[in-house]
Amino acid sequence: MNPSESLWLKQALQGDDDAFAALVEAYQRPVYNLCYRMLGNSEQEAEDAAQETFWRAYQALRRYDPQRSFVTWLLSIAAHYCIDQQRRRRIPLTSIDDLLEETLPCPASNPETLTGQAQEAEALRNLLQDLSPTDRAAVILRYWYDFSEEEIARTLSLSVSAVKSRLHRARLTLAQRWQATHSQTPLVGRRQHESPAF
């Protein structure tokens, strides 16, 4: 945490809402990204979850231990909230707006690149959706935030051995799921109705 962030934290603890808003500004991206990946790439749900995370952090600020990293604490709140949401929901939902945003090309971008990006985003979303909420959180923290197994354990309130076993199971599931998806996909270079190459 840099000195200005320590100062904002101190001021926020004294009841300064502007200081807390500065912390929101500084950490919005990692918190939002975690919610976005956890909740199946839905922008509106990720926004709501990230806002809720900062509200919960604001309410619990007095319980924050300054010895701990502030962003890790925020991500812990976000992960627990998203896990709860996923357990309640079970069925993944995607809003029509999000689907349109993912599929409609932006005039400024190259349409082919954008379609490829949207497909990749969708493929990644599908892969992660196959994991249990806690396993998904562990994978996201490991590969998007470079958290160690100990940090993941602290963030998700699990033991290190539980994190290791969850990560192993999740990696294996992702690899198997990847193979299942790609063995069904026809070869990219071949057109429909085209005769197979001998």
Binding site: A21, E25, Q51, F54, A123, L127
Partner: peptide, 20 residues
């Protein structure tokens, strides 16, 4: 590789104003 390519997603501009 897919996870590395995905990177971090940012919220829409004005997130902290909406939070306030």
């Amino acid at each position: 590789q897919q996870m590395q390519n995905a990177g971090q997603v940012a919220p829409r501009p004005g997130f902290s104003a909406r939070w306030k």
